[in-house]
Design a protein around this nucleic acid. Structure first.
Length: 474
RNA sequence: GGCGACGUAGCCAAGUGGUUAAGGCGGGGGUCUGCAAAACCCCUAUGCACCGGUUCGAAUCCGGUCGUCGCCUCCA
């Protein structure tokens, strides 16, 4: 298995420290609804985690919630509510989105505000070792004392200085130094520390949490490419300086960024589409297919057409899974092993989900062919189910028997569907149409079909039954 | 300005030295169907931004040109 490591800039053979992969992915700062960019990152790492598990690894997955930060304080101030309340609101919203997208929960979600003792311990350790210094109630990391600084971003300190004139710097020894601890202003939330009242700087919480929950060396650290510098660079500096252990992370994985038209989708540009907005129009499976259709390290341009295409694809795979094998598994059977092998080959090559998805569609076609020609596909369907689960796809179609006819209800709900969920006015219409069809009154029958179509119900006649299909996405 | 990525069919997107350039969506034709829908079959890039070079052979390596984007500042 090969993974692309940002640190080396190359694909490397994946060799974790043990059978339990220690995985840390940068989480959110909850001050607003999560957007498509978040969806991309967390779907990508969800798939990576699922695949590692499929390959037999145990995975310990930790994701932080940075629930105290300048942005939270600013936004809460504007809204006139306590920062903690704002953070809580959007943390809840975040979990709703993750659940809706079928992203498995991390094992631990440490929150910055609950990890202050560890954060202070790390900062104090850095001061003791000469890597940090207090100034004006804050504490800064002394970048010049870390000869490795810049190794992740592949940049030298001097080249960083050259481009942009230094930021801040009033009490810093060096303009590139960054804050580990920030002195609080009056009215801001604060915690007691050896350096006075204050709060953690942006990068320190990730170092403290990952060291606490996963140890001195992580196997995988993930996040968006926009975090490479300065966030992850600073994490390396903090962590390796504190522990003296190198590397802090064996494999740095970064996903490409979502673009909206010409520009990156970002907070500062304000051109965000939230996950909640997208889910109003598109199913979770469509979102996942859309995102997984391009390689995780490539930029992804959000487009309605792309989502529409993904929606069709999601539907196709769900339909295959709803097909029954009439052979009962007897006789000639479709062998899905070659597909599974190809899927694994694709995923083993730095998580090539576009190719893996192509294999899934090939297998779907194979199953449909088998079904159309009376070849058993039970086992193949099992393979399709297990492979698509790695990508987190889960649309299901449910067959329901009613007294007058055998009906199949198609839905995208993750939960069990019963006839009771079918709107009561639907069934009589379907039955009436069936009577008209038997009487060969085609025009009247078609009128009912058209009427149902307007109600969001699609009817598909098959030799055995009529399939009732919901147009709705969920 | 510095660092980096990318430019493949109508759209999206794999492939990164060697038979006919994956897959999805869309489009065209057909089978099935009362008609549809679904499914299946066939077709839809003599060519991979452009120009040179290396090679028996390049979308794939090298050089150049043009274009797009990201990071360097809060960001997944």
């Amino acid at each position: 298995m090969k993974v692309y490591n940002t640190l080396s800039g190359q694909k490397e053979e994946f060799a974790p420290q043990s059978d339990e992969v220690k995985m840390y992915v940068c989480g959110v700062t909850p001050y607003d609804d999560a957007h498509i960019g978040h969806a991309m990152s967390y779907i990508v790492f969800d798939v990576i985690r699922r695949y590692l598990q499929f390959r037999g690894y145990k995975v310990k997955y930790v994701q932080n919630v940075t629930d105290i930060d300048d942005k939270i304080i600013d936004r809460a101030g504007k809204l006139g509510i306590p920062p903690a309340e704002l953070a809580e609101k959007y943390t809840t919203s975040y979990f709703e989105d993750m659940d809706a997208l079928n992203i498995e929960r991390a094992d631990i979600y440490p929150r910055a505000t609950e990890e202050i003792p560890k954060i202070i311990e790390v900062i104090q350790g850095l001061i003791d070792k000469g890597y940090a210094y207090p100034a004006g109630g804050s504490v800064y990391f002394r970048v010049r004392n870390d000869p490795d600084y810049g190794k992740l971003a592949h940049r030298s300190l001097d080249s960083m200085m050259a481009g942009e004139c230094a930021v801040g710097g009033e009490e810093k020894e060096d303009p590139m130094d960054f804050a580990l601890w920030k002195a609080s202003k009056p009215g801001e939330p604060y915690w007691e520390s050896p350096w006075g009242e204050g709060r953690p700087g942006w990068h320190i919480e990730c170092s403290a949490m990952s060291l606490k929950y996963l140890g001195d060396t992580l196997d995988i650290h993930g996040g968006g490419q926009d975090l490479v510098f300065p966030h992850h660079e600073n994490e390396i500096a903090q962590s390796e300086s504190f522990t003296g252990v190198k590397p802090f992370v064996k494999y740095w994985l970064h996903n490409g960024l979502v673009q909206l038209g010409e520009d990156k989708m970002s907070k500062s540009l304000g051109n965000l589409i939230t996950i909640k907005q997208a889910l109003e129009k598109y199913s979770p499976d469509a979102m996942r297919i859309f995102i997984l259709s391009s390689h995780y390290r490539s930029p992804l341009t959000y487009s309605e057409e792309g989502l529409e295409a993904a929606e069709r694809g999601a539907e196709r795979i769900a339909r295959v899974i709803s097909r029954d094998d009439p052979t009962g598994g007897v006789g000639e059977a479709l062998n899905a092993e070659p597909y599974q092998k190809q899927f694994i080959e694709a995923m083993d090559d730095d998580f090539n989900t576009p190719q893996a998805l192509a294999v899934l569609f090939d297998l779907a076609r194979g199953i449909n062919q088998a079904a159309d020609s009376g070849i058993s596909f039970q086992d193949a369907k099992g393979v399709l189910l297990s492979l698509r689960a790695i990508l987190g796809l889960r649309r299901r179609d449910v067959v329901i028997e009613v007294p007058t006819a055998r009906l199949t209800i198609t839905t995208y709900a993750p939960t069990v569907v019963t006839e009771a969920q079918l709107p009561p006015e639907i069934k009589p219409l379907v039955e009436e149409r069936e009577r008209l069809r038997k009487a060969k009154k085609w025009q009247e029958a078609d009128k009912i079909r058209a009427k149902l179509d307007e109600m969001g119900i699609i009817l598909e006649d098959t030799p055995e039954s009529t399939i009732i299909r919901w147009k709705r996405k969920r």
